[in-house]
Write a protein that binds this DNA or RNA. Sequence first.
DNA 1: AATGAATGAGGATTCATTCAT
DNA 2: TATGAATGAATCCTCATTCAT
Lengths: 195, 195, 195, 195
Amino acid sequence: MSNTATTGPRQDNRRLQLLDAAARLFRAHGYHATSMRDIARAVGMLPGSIYYHFPSKDELLLTVYEEGVRRIAERVDAAVQAQRQPQQRLQAACIAHLEMLLDQSDYAQVVLRVVPDNTGPSQRRLIALRDQYEVRFKQLVAELELPPEVDRHYFRLLLLGALNWAQTWYRPGGDPPRIIAMELLRALYGGENQT
Amino acid sequence: MSNTATTGPRQDNRRLQLLDAAARLFRAHGYHATSMRDIARAVGMLPGSIYYHFPSKDELLLTVYEEGVRRIAERVDAAVQAQRQPQQRLQAACIAHLEMLLDQSDYAQVVLRVVPDNTGPSQRRLIALRDQYEVRFKQLVAELELPPEVDRHYFRLLLLGALNWAQTWYRPGGDPPRIIAMELLRALYGGENQT
Amino acid sequence: MSNTATTGPRQDNRRLQLLDAAARLFRAHGYHATSMRDIARAVGMLPGSIYYHFPSKDELLLTVYEEGVRRIAERVDAAVQAQRQPQQRLQAACIAHLEMLLDQSDYAQVVLRVVPDNTGPSQRRLIALRDQYEVRFKQLVAELELPPEVDRHYFRLLLLGALNWAQTWYRPGGDPPRIIAMELLRALYGGENQT
Amino acid sequence: MSNTATTGPRQDNRRLQLLDAAARLFRAHGYHATSMRDIARAVGMLPGSIYYHFPSKDELLLTVYEEGVRRIAERVDAAVQAQRQPQQRLQAACIAHLEMLLDQSDYAQVVLRVVPDNTGPSQRRLIALRDQYEVRFKQLVAELELPPEVDRHYFRLLLLGALNWAQTWYRPGGDPPRIIAMELLRALYGGENQT
DNA sequence: AATGAATGAGGATTCATTCAT
DNA sequence: TATGAATGAATCCTCATTCAT
């Protein structure tokens, strides 16, 4: 098990700085284009000093991933629990998901941006983490009323794909994530089923 | 302008081999994880020899991108022109798009898989190429009959996002791309508007 | 002078553990291939903590060397003193020497295995320690009856070389050290001089 | 198969320089204490440039080993073939062996000096090379007339051990290798069997 | 049209060691 | 007695690229 990002009893200050910097850089440039030197420089350390806190670049990514999943899941779960109606539960999830994804958390963005392919020995763990998060949406879609000819599997993939791909075209300054989420949902539901 | 892959009166044999190898490797491992050595080895050349054909790795990527856009656009355009009804024109486009993206063309896959971020000086050109391709969908959506409250901008982003994200979860052996495209569209249209 | 391992009125527990671990690892992997980390891990310490007990890796080696010489000398001396006849005194020395060297003491093995070359500033001390041990054999050979044309200097080098080199080809499970020592001596004496 | 050290049709100049430098440094400092930097500096190259000629440090060692065995075997075989009598054939072998070992060839010295232990993935090949060389001595000893109670296996180990260990105490300026070899043999044969 | 040989910078990682606590 | 955190230099090696031939 890799260490969780949440600190122990002590301050563990630099470890968190390190993790933050790694998340920011992985998100901005991808895994391969980010060097340990870059990360070290970002926190004012020497490259070798990172290895006191993390045994490898791969493990650093894994820890960022874990923390990313933890954070986005927390936010989405909280948003969902505040709603009763299936339709609104899903909407709340989408908004929270997109806000984390576009605006707020480098950690969460890494989870979707860094393709766990040829990133080292933790590949499978990364994929498992991602899947473990997406299970929520499987459930939310299951609760939903949908026309019988709609395959819920593809409905979920349609929705998540559209949300996740927003990372690609989103630019700060346009519509805020909340609006984007709602517009995408409106486009999806068409005229019917409106709240 | 870098030459397109089809340019050149002569055989230009090795150049094409080189492009094919680059496309295959960029698609499989990403830009940063693919080295010039890898590409050279794949065509039985020495790394230095690539530079007779291409001035840099960046330019190699750009050329693959251009060719990718050319190929997917060609296929999509042909599919669209075979249809008259807006609904079916869009459907045909989606199917062609997804087939290229998932199954058929390393070139096309690179266009979506390699995030043009910190991949070198051609960043902007890459993004422009991608955008230039997506214009087609803007037009196809414009022709479409849609409920008035649906924003056509977001409708397009929803659809393309869902299609493009399929790269992430698609595994050969599951439903073929054509079926996936149609299921996603059915999930999008819900019960209404059926052909 | 660095302290010998037995010095210290107190328990000096960790210091001894440290030496044992260092001896074991130096013997198994050599000086350069053994890191302070390895040694620390072997006794459940952090690398920095070693420096409370020893000022440097070099000094650690020196101490192991000293202890190695002390131990093998002790054993050989005891074995020799139990015999009267020159021939048998030498034989006893060879057996004790080989048993320590092949089987019993990591410390003793380090003395012969780690070539004191570019191992740090103690080089000369290490060589001196080794020489100081070998003096015993000079004496044992001096007592011996030998044909006049045999140079006692080379006789000693022949014998010690053969014994020490056994480290190279010895594998546990073959003849035990005692037998090896006696067979080598028999090969050396040929038919004559038999006890 | 690693490349042999003997040049191809071209000059292959730097490769040989590299091999020479590696042999010299491995002999002088051992494998672990010699860095690629050291080797590069010795031939006026940058460290990375070595990798054009050799794929790894381990392979460099392997090639030196191979060349070392080749050279010493060649010399020893030539010396042996010039003699008829078993006793003198062995003597010639010992002299040649020791001359290579002490004076002449860094390559040969590496074979005996660098313990193939924790030196990387070629360990077994290194040991095999060493064994393959020593087979000669098995044969030479087999031809020899020896008292029946002498085990020829141990006789060979005695002899080779004594010769090889000479590396440890030999200092230029003392008796030359030829004399040393003969003195060791005289010590071994005692008064009898003299030529 | 390509090779052989190299460059120089940078890749991740490990080293022995330090020192405030 | 030791730890936690770091240093600075070095480790082996790979990178994209160059250029005379």
